[in-house]
Design a protein around this nucleic acid. Structure first.
Length: 802
RNA sequence: GCCGAAGUGGCGGAAUUGGCAUACGCGCACGACUUAAAAUCGUGUGGAGAAAUCCAUGAGGGUUCAAAUCCCUCCUUCGGCACCA
């Protein structure tokens, strides 16, 4: 250890020049090796006398390059984890790779390399990059979601959900990306476009697998109260789940055979059209009703509809529309009246026309609405276009009318079931076999994993089938039940399925018999602190919460978890922009390369600058010269060693205690920028004295160690310590010493600051007044005028109103 | 359109139960060291003014002894949702 430097700093005091130079490259490599060798960051499942603390960052996708955004997520998070460790927690901070999924595949296709090779090569590169950060990861728990040892259990999870009816297959319109050749979950469609390639998404009828997340809508909403998450994120999830309370109201249908006959009659078998509304109070103003194109009334009553051809033509046209067209801003409302039938407004008993229009959504509520143009903008627009009656009828009491009409109160959610099948190669195969006799059969658990074959032909196809469908070896199998010839499901799972349970696997990454050991999970979960991007608000974060709840409900052996929220606390990092204030992109040429920065400044400088440069949740533009400030600062910390002495002279014990308090609280609150600033103030102060007590230097090293772990460790050992600084205790402060000895007392005249002087704490208003009025400055400002009023804030200020 | 966050020196940003606006850093200027430069160290640095002082936290109003902070109206930027009845 430390063969090149002096054996110990203890003797180097006073005039002696520091002999060794701060060489980040050398010490960073040295300590990274040392930490790995001594496994100081490997977490044991329990340590006597220590509380477990599960610290988690969102695991990266192996894109092949650890960019500055990753650094901004991981480095400050590591500062937090290191402080927790030093505060005496048994911290687990694992890392892995979310390696299945569309983007890897697209990139692989672009470069003509097999997705598998591409992915694992990237994992290798990124592992090295991650190691260069010097974070306190427990590498022994590394997981890779595309490893059969991992996706075996992803498949197992699917089967548990399937057995409980939480996974099901159905044929229905789904979001289809024509470029990626796959269906997408609702959450993956942004502005009517594919979130990956930005192609316009179209609706396509395809057989697909879904998870019944809607069953958990209410709990997903309610349990948000249990977690310490950014309010913004909670609100976004709430909006996404979209709860609304309303009523189902039945409109009876009357019909006539001919268009000229104006008399409508009740049908032989009574038929009711049910609408969902949150505004039952406006029912007297309902002048027509609208059904969605896919509403079953059209086929059910087709014999009664006199303009069936026209209606069917409209339905066909609206079905061909792009999802985007249906939702754009220049949405011109379209529709067709369904002639031959009328609906009866149950409140007024009047007959109203029925329309089919695609501004009503088939999948929400009952797919039918009562239109009240006087109280609803959308209905108004439609009514104006089609010349329909607009009646501003007085509102009635909601509850009373619901009762009177015998309507049913219900709750609706915007949330839709999670579509998990993908017609792509690079994912975990869905473990289902189709048998001509037995139908869909789950692959027995003992036969898992269903291995993803390494096929040459991994390109996606337009026909709506996974590339796996071309692999006969894969498709052809035997029915697990009757042993007859059968075929495998060829779709793979959405990568978000893999990431919905990875935080559980970290507790038991090598388990061959179970996805995880329940006791181990109990020791670590729920996650104490989760740090990652806000872009996952309605995807990963919602899905993981669903998984946790489902696993809890499933009970043993699948789950039986004793918690129903996976992440108790959550923090988001902001986005780092290029120095031009724009999003970083290769075409703009404003990309910041962290490897280059590490090469030039060292990891510690990069870590600390990321902490310092902005408010963490905010982020902001990269300032290429700002990093110099941190580089200089660490250099100065290094050089402080030439001032070391055994003298009992303290730098300023109040400042020391105040700094400990400030930094501890700032890190706890993810205010890394002001924590670094406090460190700078402390160092500025220490530099003012010629001598620095070793004890105080050690304290500084501890405070700086989460930010600049390598530098702190090096200097810590140079001082003669034999154990890692990260095994030492985080400094504590004396609350008494964080208070000022004297107070800078502010004098305001008419609310403006005119004087300031020192007072001992705790003096009374009377004393303060006397002292104040004696001051020359104050006399000048009062100038013989009458004092009308005096406001005194103890230990702060006095305001004299004249 | 709806929901949310934000707007402070030349720049990144501090300051929030209302109480010294601009901490800390970058940049800049001057000085020391140097043959010189870099590095380093020191001093200064919101604007106007000779000064006393005045003016400044997106704009305009308000509440208050006192407002970056609270209220109202508006503007701008960013993030999310977007025919969900």
């Amino acid at each position: 250890m430390n063969r090149n430097g002096p054996p110990s700093l203890k003797l180097r005091t006073g005039k002696q020049k520091y002999m060794n130079k701060y060489n980040p490259k050398k010490i960073e490599a040295k300590w990274q090796k040392h930490w790995t060798k001594n496994k100081i960051y490997n977490a044991k499942d329990s340590v006597k006398g220590k509380k477990n603390f599960y610290h988690l960052v969102m695991f990266p996708y192996p894109s092949g390059d650890l960019h500055i955004g990753h650094w901004y997520n991981f480095a400050p998070a590591d500062v937090y984890a290191r402080m927790k460790k030093m505060q005496g927690f048994n911290v687990m901070s694992p890392i892995g790779f979310d390696s299945f999924g569309l983007p890897a595949e697209n990139a692989a296709i672009k470069r003509g390399i097999h997705p598998c090779e591409w992915t694992y090569k990237n994992i290798e590169t990124m592992t090295k990059q991650l190691e260069s950060m010097g974070n306190m990861y427990d590498w022994s728990r590394k997981i890779i979601t595309s490893d059969p040892e991992y996706y075996k259990w992803t498949q197992w999870m699917f089967l548990q959900l399937y057995k409980k009816g939480l996974a099901y297959k159905k044929k229905a319109a789904a979001n289809w990306c024509p470029k990626c050749h796959t269906v997408l979950a609702n959450e993956q469609v942004i502005d009517g476009r594919c979130e990956r390639c930005e192609s316009e998404v179209i609706q396509r009828n395809i057989e697909q697998w879904l998870f019944r997340i809607t069953k958990y809508a209410d709990r997903l909403l309610k349990d948000l109260d249990k977690v310490d998450w950014p309010e913004k994120t909670k609100i976004m999830q709430k909006n996404w789940i979209g709860k609304s309370e309303g009523a189902l109201i039945k409109f009876e249908i009357r019909s006539t055979k001919s268009e000229t006959n104006t008399k409508y009659k009740i049908l032989n078998t009574k038929y009711f059209l049910e609408v969902f509304t949150t505004r039952a109070d406006t029912i007297f103003g309902c002048t027509y009703v609208v059904v969605a194109p896919e509403h079953k009334i059209i086929s059910n009553l087709k014999s009664q509809i006199s303009n069936l051809n026209e209606v069917n033509k409209y339905i066909k046209e609206s079905g061909h529309k792009l999802e985007k067209e249906r939702l754009t801003e220049n949405k011109q409302k379209t529709g067709v009246e369904i002639k031959g039938i009328k609906a009866v407004n149950p409140a007024t008993s009047k007959e109203v026309p029925i329309f089919v229009a695609d501004y009503v959504l088939g999948h929400y509520g009952t797919g039918a609405i009562m239109a009240v143009p006087a109280y609803d903008e959308r209905d108004l627009e439609f009514a104006q276009k089609f010349n329909l009656a607009i009646i501003k009828a007085p509102l009635v009491l909601q509850d009373e009318i619901i009762k009177k009409l015998g309507a049913q109160k219900i709750i609706n959610y915007k949330l839709r079931d999670w579509l998990v099948s993908r017609q792509r190669y690079w994912g975990a195969p869905i473990p289902i076999v189709y048998c001509p006799k037995c139908g869909a059969v789950a692959v027995p658990e003992k036969d898992l994993p269903v291995l993803l074959p390494k096929v040459k032909d991994y390109l996606p196809t337009e026909e709506g089938k996974s590339p796996l469908a071309h692999s006969k070896d894969f498709v052809n199998t035997k029915c697990p039940k009757c042993k007859d010839l059968a075929e495998r499901e060829t779709d793979t799972m959405d990568t978000f399925v893999c990431s919905s349970w990875y935080y559980l696997r970290y507790t038991d990454p090598k388990n061959k018999h179970k996805p995880f050991d329940k006791l181990r999970v109990k020791k670590w979960l729920p996650v104490d602190m989760y740090v990652g991007g806000a872009e996952h608000t309605v995807l990963h974060l919602l899905y993981s919460r669903f998984f946790t709840k489902a696993l809890k409900d499933l009970g043993p052996p699948a789950g039986g978890l004793n918690f129903d929220e996976p992440f108790m606390a959550l923090r988001h990092q902001g986005t780092i922009l290029g120095s031009d204030g724009q999003k970083m992109s290769k075409s703009r040429g404003n990309v910041v390369d962290p490897d280059e920065l590490v090469k030039n400044f060292g990891t510690d400088v990069v870590r600390m600058y990321l902490c310092f440069m902005a408010e963490y949740s905010q982020g902001g533009p990269w300032n290429p010269t700002g990093i110099m400030g941190i580089s200089r600062f660490l250099e100065r910390v290094w050089k402080l060693q030439c001032r070391l002495s055994h003298s009992r002279r303290l730098c300023d014990s109040r400042l020391l205690h105040k700094t400990i308090k400030k930094i501890t609280e700032d890190i706890e609150n993810f205010k890394f920028n002001t924590a670094v600033s406090s460190l700078m103030i402390l160092v500025n102060e220490m530099e003012k004295n010629k001598e620095l007590r070793i004890k105080n230097y050690e304290l500084l090293l501890k405070l700086i160690s989460p930010f600049a772990p390598h530098l702190a460790e090096e200097l810590w050992f140079q001082l003669g310590n034999k154990k890692s600084i990260f095994l030492s205790a985080w400094p504590k402060y004396d609350p008494k010493k964080t208070k000022e000895e004297t107070i800078n007392f502010v004098v305001q005249i008419n609310g403006k600051m005119r004087d300031i002087f020192e007072i001992p704490p705790g003096i009374s208003q009377k004393e303060a007044r006397v002292l104040t009025l004696k001051r020359q400055n104050v006399k000048k400002w009062i100038g013989g005028k009458t004092v009308k009023r005096v406001i005194f804030i103890p230990n702060k200020l006095i305001n004299i109103v004249i």
